[in-house]
Design a protein around this nucleic acid. Sequence first.
DNA 1: CTGTATCCTACGCGATACTG
DNA 2: CAGTATCGCGTAGGATACAG
Lengths: 143, 143
Amino acid sequence: MEEGTLGEPGYCCDTSDAFQWDSREDCDVRQILDRIADKWSLLVIALLDDRSMRFTELKKTIDGISQRMLTVTLRQLERDGLVSRTVHPVVPPRVDYALTPLGVGLHATIQSLVTWTESHQAEIAGARARYDAATAATASPVE
Amino acid sequence: MEEGTLGEPGYCCDTSDAFQWDSREDCDVRQILDRIADKWSLLVIALLDDRSMRFTELKKTIDGISQRMLTVTLRQLERDGLVSRTVHPVVPPRVDYALTPLGVGLHATIQSLVTWTESHQAEIAGARARYDAATAATASPVE
DNA sequence: CTGTATCCTACGCGATACTG
DNA sequence: CAGTATCGCGTAGGATACAG
């Protein structure tokens, strides 16, 4: 399933004159952004701060994620070199996940995003309420 | 349907002792994060730097986005108070989208994420190649 | 130009069951 | 415990057509 033979890292999107976000598969920035900004990836990265965590521990902490999605997500992050996977060959299998140096760098950015969200959720909620009220009023001018 | 009467901005997830990401719908941080980290939202926010842009302009620049998704995305962002929508009542309808003050704040964070991705795409691509090579080798130890 | 309304398909993802 | 494999549903989202 992995056509993975990507000898070409893939730079394109000539940022020369006309800036453009496009080139969906040409440039992999879009693709990487998608992976990173993924619902679960985001949470895993944010969670894996300094300490390493075990599979089950992650599953418990994130809660809502299925075993499948956690596995898939972790595999992707591992493939991208953001998370390291350490298997301890003991009787009850024990696997630790931790951020790689590369992952740590990303963590900082992600964390600021999370922090921003936390400190502005009230404003967003307010904006939504206002928008919904206005919309409802327009839709059905009750009076 | 709008429990919108949110005198309560909505803090839950007691960050007291045991930190946890969970509470999917309880705490809306998760939900907001999802919206923000959305594939298209991310690009729109990143694109809408200081200047405002028209609908078609956005569509052209992002390229790959369908008209439907652009509309939906913009509506969500508008609802969240991140983007403002200005309709000019002229013959050929003209609508301008721009970041709100709130949106500007988010833009900074998003931008750093984009920048990080751009400056590390080579490393990620490398990691992938390495991972795929290792995986392929394990799967079929040709020699 | 800027949307909105339908239709329809691909596939993300949860549920479940089975290995080492 | 830490996965992998399979099945099946729900829905995100693209294509298309129409409207102000």
